[in-house]
Design a protein around this nucleic acid. Sequence first.
RNA 1: GGGAGUUUAGCUCAGCUGGUUCAGAGCAUCUGCCUUACAAGCAGAGGGUCACUGGUUCGAACCCAGUAACUCCCACCA
Length: 898
Amino acid sequence: MDIAKTYLPKQAEDKWYSYWLKHNFFRSVPDEREPYTIVIPPPNVTGVLHMGHMLNNTIQDVLIRRARMKGKNACWVPGTDHASIATEAKVVTMLKERGINKKDLTRDEFLKYAWEWKEKYGGIILEQLKKLGASCDWERTKFTMDEDMSEAVIDYFVHLHKQGLIYRGVRMVNWDPQGKTAVSDEEVIRKEVNQKLYYIKYPVSEELKDKSEKSELSTFNFEPSTQNFVTVATTRPETIMADAAICVNPNDERYLHLHGRKVYIPLINREIPIILDEYVTMDFGTGCLKVTPAHDLNDYELGQKHKLPIIDILNDDATLNEKAQILVGEDRFVARKKIAVLLEEAGALAKTEDYTSQIGFSERTNAVIEPKLSMQWFCKMKELAKPALEYVLDGEVKLIPEKFVNTYRHWMENVRDWNISRQLWWGQQIPAYYLPNGEFVVAKTKEEALVQAQAIDPKLSIDDLTQDEDVLDTWFSSGLWPISVFDGVRNPDNAEINYYYPTNDLVTAPEILFFWVARMIIAGHELRKQKPFNNVYLTGIVRDKLGRKMSKSLGNSPDPLDLIDKYGADGVRVGMLLCSPAGNDLMFDEKYCKQGSGFANKIWNAFKLIKGWQVDTNLKPGNEVAIAWFESRFNQALTDIEDDFAQYRLSEALMATYKLVWDDFCAWYLEMVKPVYQQGVEKQSIDKTTYEATIAFFENILKVLHPFMPFLTEELWHDELFGEREELDCCIVAQLPNNGQINTRLNAEIEVVQQVVEKIRNVRDTKQLSPKEALPLAVKANSAIDYNKYQPIIKQLGNISELTLVTEAVNGANSFIAGTDEFYITLDIAVDAVAESARLEKEKEYLLGFLKSVNAKLGNERFMANAKPEIIEIENRKKADAEAKLRILEDNLAALAN
RNA sequence: GGGAGUUUAGCUCAGCUGGUUCAGAGCAUCUGCCUUACAAGCAGAGGGUCACUGGUUCGAACCCAGUAACUCCCACCA
């Protein structure tokens, strides 16, 4: 039969994924085995797979598959997040395209559209994950707005409210004028922006009585005539109409004459007081601050302190309202430009300066955040954060890499109250019910709310209650994820939550350490007094090879599905992992995927080679040494790989596997045992022992590879090479081999043998001899290595015609040293004594230098006094080895000279 | 402004408690091979002032101090 020349991923991928599904290999139900649980970081329900997801989910899949193959009850819970702001924005856009304005819809009508949208586009991303090979238990797929999930959220809200941890209040919030909702502090991204600093002159309302009371404004390069003005620097001239005061530092000697005075706001001529507060920095701007309590957080606090009126001149969409008196209806940024012109015309603009400062942008809509006063719901964080911090500091929840502990601590120690209300419809509506008198009660249902309400006013009926319009922040619900997917909020003692929780590993991006990870730990402690997971593996950000973050707007992100199409899912998985050491950003380059698919092909070809063999029972076993060595080497590699996994060094585990397969198995083992080509036969004859051992090795290799390359390994697993397989005998559920014996002596001796082979090849290369030409080799063994034992290997790999053991150096031969043994290859052509001497001299020189440094150490009294005995012993051995080699070299040099 | 991190070969990264011939791996590069599994391959080779400057030490890529560059997080200087 014909075997494809290269591995063809496409056929294998769909075939085996459905096979796994059909046989429920991803399914997990509680049983007597040890559980291993991962909950997926739920992607946005309307999201599309990007490279970050690829990395994240590849890692999770590797971990879950490995756990499965170690006999654990592996459960990977998939699902999606309703992502209120992002999704609502998408729905609004969609409606707009259809000519529908959200304003014209009722809440119910809008939600109907939103659900339609979710049904249509939601879950695309989960389908995409299947292409990657994600072995999630799809029967457990959850959505954060599923009925039970929402109920859990409401329960949690009611619970926190009962604890007195949720309150309602007017606060300055981060207002997203595009999403028309408040967003939390964490959802504001600050960026450096080039702006202008406008110096605005506010006329002082009374003439200065004493002309001699001269200000020192001249140091600011102002026109002398400005002494009747107060000049204020601001980046937001459009808010002057909302000014409630001008503030100067009481210690600022320049402004003593202004104490107790009043000024007029330019253009609208409203009179405002000059107030004094040490908050003002004297050496910034002019040292005068305009106080605009409605539109700046600090000004708000200053306003509260000084009991200033709050004048809000902005609408929810950040256009100016009638309180502004001028430019009503204009957008804030349009107004800024226009007012600058108006001020200029009125002679109230002293100057403008270029200025860069940080501005907040909405993470969801990218709109410039407007500080806005409004009534919001808040969650008290201080008490909640404390135990959540302890979990991490105690190491009960391990962050990988550890460096994030500091960041986590810093945040948890400086946490502020969390604004949990969002002025949206898509999400869990806050379970607060208002009485006609404005009081409110919090309850799970309207009926329960009525009971509470009637305690206040017995005459109330259910129609008198109105529910709060706002919904909860998405993170409020995703914080419950590891508990709510097992129904642990509503039924805290059910069999599932007791079995699967706490989960084992969480794999997520460091960007959402606080948004999400911290809140899960908080919820875990609050609801169950338990951590939600043992380990948090924080992946890096996927960047392009120039180090730029991959994003749609930059257009530097490849489509993951295209990559899978091009390199196969296994190739892409390997590619992602090859360049993603734990916690480091990943400089993604397609070439890694190429390396991945190249690796898949290498394995495929090893398979093809073995497929071409046929047992000939007449042949005697002839590869005991090779077989014993590979077994030992394999066990060694298993230990190394296990160790890498234990430390979450997935890249290194993969690289160790890569080298095991490519170097040890293909380049050495298979070359050692591969039969000499026999012409005219379809299959190459091989002895039974070697054949069986090789197949067993190959099967074990497939197991080790499986977590990284599930499709290829499953495909090969079912080849007839391995005999008949039961229907359920699949690589995905095969058990990883246990760590077996490691023969360190054999491993070490083979390393010398490998050196010998490499040096023979080197001689061949430098003498430009054909690899086909067999050469004679003589060994003068100074070590205990029995070269008779390794003769077949050396002969086959080095193409040696004859290997003789000698006791004296061979004259006129090309020599080399491997380990401490001497090797001689006698060639027909005469040795180029000059070149050979030069080569040996160079080696000698190096050894002498080395010996000198070793002797320097050994001759150093303080070294001998301070170094540990084993170090000294090592140095002594180094010295002995070097001296032995030097003697050999000198002998060889002497022989050449003759 | 505060904090954390990074800096090792052309690229991406290992290098654990300071001490093996310790300066490494993979990729890339160069040279030679179309050797019956694989040219997506094989064989061989080259490539580094371990960011810089000082210090500690018998001994430093590793510890300490300072400097520089980059990255991230946090923060209300208009």
